[in-house]
Nucleic acid binder design. Structure first.
Length: 499
RNA sequence: GCCCUCAUCGUCUAGUGGACUAGGACAUCAGCCUUUCAAGCUGAGAACAGGGAUUCGAAUUCCCUUGAGGGCACCA
């Protein structure tokens, strides 16, 4: 791999590292956008450089309300802090105009009066004839007289770059090596639109130069526009930054990430209960690896070890199961207090409204200690523990009779349990187990059947945290009440069966 | 259609000519643990796209084919 230009350590840098994340507010940021932001951030932090945020809002028509805030919120959520307050290209129009004029004066650009309709028709025609769609250059060689006439028609022209007709343009990509393009396959692309806004190509080059960007780390989809950018740099006599085109993140169908791939907006992962530290770890491993075995890395470890050499060239399919697993690992690593703190907003949000707020924090703490190792996301915490908070449990009476338990022995078992529990002195998990385990033998039931029965009676479900701990957290009153209810449901069931 | 890029288990990846009977992780399956679930532990199956060439020796280098992705706007 060609890494001659890559910084080896802070002291050997030819120029300070300055990278940027340059999203356009035409949509909400998704996994791919954020992965790009992360790699830029890691690169800046690794080499003691600057991470710059630039909003590329040069498309007035496609601007999405709230997108800028969403971008900033995403970066804040993941703690990808930027060093220079966000730049907005829409506030720098005069700068691009000036550079466009300079290109015009140097004959590296020209005014084009072609209507969008003509261009569209031209493209259709080219596609129909299986020709590559390219601007045909009609306005490239206008005579003085034609120019005067067109100017008189009050059409606002666009500025197009005068792409060399032959030769080739190549550049060194830090990840892919040398990449070359025949200029003849390029066309005279637009630099300045008729609304006075620059296109991506112009604004991008101008700002990267003005902001002294040293390395452009961007997604692979930009690779084919890089020769255009190189041509602009050359025409302006500017040094180009180093380029590194990152492998794309693909949806499960192996196509570019888009709305139809589900949770498109990165903030939805927060809603779904993913931890930012898990997101960072997971995203870092999409296209980068430390070695042949390390999966779990802290932010600090990522910063210390990140390097362009270890970025892979292959596009990666986003694998949600692995994210879930990793999130579970991070959840279990949290201290109990921290878990409570992180889970509480989700409990407030998703527990049934009938449950009184605010939740009792000591009680929540006890419940969470039983839930922490069972959750893969914070969003599933409420439904894992709602029975701890509810008054009435909804469940099918038949659920009490799993594993071939007869209703007669179930009734007997619940009755006996109730009698004993009513007089149990100490209500903690250990005492409860000491009392109930021998009872299974006494009732001539397997522990699986007996405890399974009690579990459904106490929690309303067949899968729950360990029975005795659950009973201990719920108080005696609640447990006895639930057992009584279970008894009622069992007799109702028996009566129904006998009819 | 043209241009560019990429190609190792289902998925993320390790691998930079010999240490590869190709390693790890997720997922899957089986077993253990166990009052259920989860976690944990043990184990299993699972890949170098195909064909040439270079070489004493190719997952690793080169070429071709195939496949995949991206780009070809007054969008970014």
């Amino acid at each position: 791999m060609a890494n001659a230009n890559m910084p080896q350590s802070g002291s050997e840098l030819e120029t300070p590292v300055r990278v940027r994340f340059a999203p356009s507010p035409t949509g909400y940021p998704h996994l791919g956008n954020i992965r790009t932001a992360l790699f830029n951030w890691l690169f800046a932090r690794r080499y003691g450089g600057k991470f710059i945020l630039r909003i590329e809002d040069t498309d007035v028509a496609r601007k999405v309300e709230g997108a800028v805030e969403m971008i900033l919120d995403s970066l804040r959520w993941l703690e990808l802090d930027w060093d220079e307050s966000p730049y907005f290209q829409s506030q720098r129009l005069d700068i691009y105009r000036e550079v466009a004029d300079r290109l015009l004066n140097g004959n590296d650009a020209y005014l084009c009066y072609c209507s969008p309709e003509r261009l569209e028709a031209m493209r259709q025609e080219q596609i129909k004839h299986k020709q590559p769609p390219k601007y045909d250059g009609r306005c490239r060689h206008l005579t003085q007289q034609q120019k005067t006439e067109l100017r008189a028609q009050a059409i606002t022209p666009v500025v197009r770059f005068r792409t060399p007709l032959d030769g080739e343009t190549s550049f060194q990509d830090l990840i892919r090596g040398r990449v070359s393009f025949q200029n003849s396959t390029l066309d005279d692309f637009v630099l300045l639109k008729s609304d006075g806004y620059p296109t991506y190509h112009l604004a991008n080059v101008v700002d990267d130069n003005l902001m002294a960007i040293s390395h452009v780390l961007r997604a692979d989809e930009w690779l084919s526009s890089t020769p255009r950018h190189m041509l602009i740099y050359q025409a302006l006599n500017w040094d180009a930054p180093h380029f590194a085109h990152l492998p794309m993140i693909l949806g499960p169908d192996r196509s570019k990430l888009s709305k139809r791939h589900g949770a498109t907006n990165i903030m939805e992962y927060r809603e779904q209960g993913y931890l930012p530290e898990a997101m960072i770890n997971f995203l870092a491993l999409l296209g980068w690896s430390l070695d042949d075995r390390t999966e779990l890395l802290t932010r600090q470890e990522l910063v210390r070890n990140f390097s362009l050499e270890r970025i892979s060239k292959t596009a990666a399919v986003f694998n949600k199961e692995k994210l879930e697993w990793m999130n579970g690992v991070y959840l279990r690593q949290l201290s109990p207090d921290e878990f409570v703190q992180r889970a509480t907003p989700f409990l407030d949000r998703d527990l049934p409204l009938s449950i009184e707020r605010p939740l009792h924090s000591d009680y929540v703490r006890q419940v969470m200690s039983l839930i922490q190792e069972r959750a893969k996301t914070l969003a599933e915490v409420p439904r894992l523990c709602d029975f701890f908070f509810m008054d009435e449990l909804q469940y099918e009476a038949s659920l009490l009779l799993s594993r071939g338990l007869s209703s007669e022995s179930a009734v007997e078992a619940v009755k006996t349990s109730l009698r004993r529990l009513e007089v149990t002195e100490v209500w903690d998990a250990e005492s409860l187990e000491e009392m109930l385990r021998p009872l299974a033998t006494e009732l001539n039931l397997s522990t699986a059947k007996f405890f399974g029965l009690l579990r459904v009676a106490i929690t309303g479900r067949s899968a729950a945290p360990p029975l005795f701990q659950t009973m201990a957290v719920l108080d005696r009153g609640k447990c006895l009440k639930r057992l009584t209810t279970a008894l009622d449901r069992l007799s109702a069931l028996t009566q129904a069966q006998n009819k």
